[in-house]
Design a protein around this nucleic acid. Structure first.
Lengths: 128, 128
DNA sequence: TCATTGGTTAAGGAAGTACTTGACTATAGG
DNA sequence: CCTATAGTCAAGTACTTCCTTAACCAATGA
């Protein structure tokens, strides 16, 4: 269940410590998304988190570990119960990346629209 | 490189055909995110996509297949060159899920604030 | 005190992921 | 026609992921 670190993907370009890798990877599992949805409504214990899920407790623990490893969740043990709470900032990181792509896309569409409307010159596709 | 379909995660609850699984899984890889970032700027051929990446062409093809399998990218072959373009709607699907979580979180915080400010009654944590 | 509840650890296995190399097909251009 | 370019297919491999079972420990609470 560990998530490894890989070498840089694109030549001469940092990859933000692969944190987006870990966050998206964490969210790529329906069980973990269900946990996030539950945690968004408020902190809960491990067994509370586990109750609606059709799997063993250790499996649930491993999912929690993945969520904690990417900073999406924090937990604290008091007595014998471990209470998990969500860390919304990390969720935001992922949302920001997505939003960034969308706005780039939208700006590109705008430029493309302007070009089609009022300039009969011949700039290349790649420059748009 | 195939992405399988699993059984329902939470009892008696549909999982939207696992499409979020596939999208987040696709985005969990830095190479594929780099491809998305490139594609957002405009359609490109496979080898164009491959150029900045330090891996073999077949590897690049496999990443493209993952992106196509979740609907994030479409491609069309004309002559001997395959041109890939992004499908922004699917990107939006992921963004929407994230945004939904954030707004749930924010609404919960509001309710919590109201409660702390003006009601000395005793509603339970879970009801907030 | 002693069973129960809540959680944890360790080990193992089936399936999935991210590459590789090598061989191969199909255009495009001279 | 012939070579280079662009892409594809198949197989193999190292590693990761998701889950299991079988112990096990540590706080409750009767």
């Amino acid at each position: 269940m560990t998530i490894g670190v890989r070498r840089p993907i694109v030549k001469d370009m940092p990859n933000y410590g692969g944190s987006l890798d870990r966050v998206f990877q964490a969210l790529a599992d329906g069980t973990r998304r269900a946990m996030v949805e539950r945690l968004i409504r408020g902190p809960v214990s491990v067994s509370e988190l586990a109750r609606p899920l059709e799997m063993s407790l250790p499996a649930v623990m491993q999912h929690i570990q993945v969520l904690e490893a990417c900073g999406l969740v924090r937990s604290e043990k008091i007595g014998r119960v471990r209470t998990c709470r969500i860390e919304p900032d990390v969720l935001r990181t992922a949302e920001d990346w997505l939003a960034g792509q969308r706005t780039s896309w939208e700006r590109r569409l705008d430029r493309l629209g302007d070009y089609l409307l009022d300039d009969p010159g011949t700039p290349e596709e790649g420059s748009l």
